[in-house]
Design a protein around this nucleic acid. Sequence first.
DNA 1: TCTTCCCCTCAACATGAGGTTGAGGGTGGG
DNA 2: CCCACCCTCAACCTCATGTTGAGGGGAAGA
Lengths: 263, 263
Amino acid sequence: MAERAHMSIGEVLSLLQQEFPDVTISKIRFLESQGLLDPERTPSGYRKFYEPDIERLRWILMQQRENFLPLRVIKDRLEGGPDAEPLDLEGDPSAVASTAPAPEPAPEPEPKAEARPSRADRKSQAPSGGGALDSGPTAISLTRVELAASAGLPDKIITELERYGLITGRPMGRDTLYDEDALVVARLAAGFFRYGVEARHLRMYKVAAEREASFFEQVVLPLVKQRNPAARRQAVDNLAELAALGEGLRGAMLRNALRSYSL
Amino acid sequence: MAERAHMSIGEVLSLLQQEFPDVTISKIRFLESQGLLDPERTPSGYRKFYEPDIERLRWILMQQRENFLPLRVIKDRLEGGPDAEPLDLEGDPSAVASTAPAPEPAPEPEPKAEARPSRADRKSQAPSGGGALDSGPTAISLTRVELAASAGLPDKIITELERYGLITGRPMGRDTLYDEDALVVARLAAGFFRYGVEARHLRMYKVAAEREASFFEQVVLPLVKQRNPAARRQAVDNLAELAALGEGLRGAMLRNALRSYSL
DNA sequence: TCTTCCCCTCAACATGAGGTTGAGGGTGGG
DNA sequence: CCCACCCTCAACCTCATGTTGAGGGGAAGA
C-alpha cells in the first residue's frame, strides 16, 4: 500500500486550523479560484494537497495575517519572485521646503558649563551584555543644571523629558539630582531631537520598556520568590541575559520591518 | 499679512497630487473621519494643514500605496495602538526591545569634540544580531531543516515562530528558504525558550519593531521623498543612527523599569 | 456689495476585495 | 448502500474605502 502522500481539503483544514483559526474550506477553494493555489486532482475531481501545496497555503495565510497583503500582491510575489518594482515616471518639480531638518552629522553639542563634578569615571560599555543592571543606581549624580549642560540641552527640554517620565530625578536637599541613566537618556534624546523628533514621541520607549520589564519579571518570578541570595543573584543574571536577548530580537525585527519599507 | 504657515485642503491637494495622483479632497476628509489626521481648524471651520500634518498625510498615502496597509493598521502604527492579544500570565505584549550599549554614554572628561561614531560596525557575531540595515539581500539561505538544525531547535518550533510572524521564509521551488535574520531570530528565540518563554510571547517584539520602524520612517521621510541617491544613502544612514539611538533608549528605559521592580 | 470660488457637514450611494451559503449532485469506504 | 465527504456554480454578504450631492457658510477681489 503506497503511503498516501497527499491530503484531502478537509484534512488540510484540520491541519491548519490551529495555526489559522479562520481558515475554512470555502476559503481554500476561493484562494484556488483566485489562482493562488493549484492542487492536483484525483480522477474524480477531489483536490490532492501535497506538502508544497500546504507550505504555499501556509505562506499565503501568513502574508495575509502578518503583512496584510492583498491576494493580488501575494500572487505576484509567489509567481514573480521578488518584487518587480513598478516604475513611476514622475518629475518632482516642486522642491518643497520641509520642516524636517535633514540632519547632517551634526557636531556634538558643545559642553557648556565647565563647572561639572566630573567624578565618576566610568566604563560601562558591556557591549551586548545589556548595560549593567546591577550597577548601583547612582554612580553619578547631577543637578538639573549640570544635567542640562552635560547633555547639551536647554533646561526646558529636560523638564519636557521629565514630564513624559523619560527621566526621573530624586529630590535631594533643595535641588533634584539625576543619575547616570538620566544623562544617558538626555543625550540619546538630544540625538533624536536633531532629527526633529520631540520628547513626546519618545514616550513609546518608556511604555514599551515597562511592558518588556514586566514580561521579564514574570519570567524570573520563580527565582525571585525564593528569598535566598543565590537565587536572587541568579535572577539578576537572568534578567541581564533576557535583556540582551531582547535587544537582539528588537534589532532583528526592526531591521526586518525597515526593510519592508522599500528602502 | 503674516506668512501663513498653513495650507487649505485644496492647497494640500494640489501639492500632493503629483506624488499621489489618486488623492482627492474627499479622501483627505475621509482619512480625517477615520482618525488618521486631525488638522487644526480656523474659527470658521476650515481645515488648516501645517507641515507635520502634510508629512503625516504623505506617510499615510505611502503606506497605502507601497505596503498595502489597511487604514486601521496605519492608524495603530501612527499612534501606538491597542495590539490586543489577551495574555494568560505574561505581561501584555507590545514592547520595544533592545538593551543598548548606550552609544557614547560617558560624560567625557576631555575636550575632544569629534564627530560621533554614527554607526557601529558590528558584524553579526553571536546571536546578538547587530545592525547593518543596508546589508544586501541576505547572504545566506537555509532550508527549513537546515535552519532548525543551525538554531538547535526542532522543526516544530520553527513553524511556531513562523506562525507568529517572527521569522519569514520565502517559498522557492519545493521548499521554503530562510535568510540570515531568520537564523538570528531563531537563535535568540532559543535563548528565550530556555527561560520557559513561548513563541507567542515574543510577538510583542514584532509589533513593537513595526511601530518603531514606522516612526523612524516618518522621521526620515523628507529624505526618501527626494529620489536622488545621495539623499537615499543619507536616509539609510539616518535610519541606522535612529536605530542605535532607539537601542540606547530602550536599554536605559528598560534598566530603569527593571530597577523599580526592586531587584 | 456682489460674485465666485472654496470650504463645511452629513447622509446616501458606489465599488471591489474577500469570502459564505446553498442547491444540486458525485465519491468512496465501512 | 449509506453517510460523510467532496465537487461546482451562482447568488449573496460584509467590510473597507471612498464618492457624490444637497444644503449652506466664508473669503476676497472687482
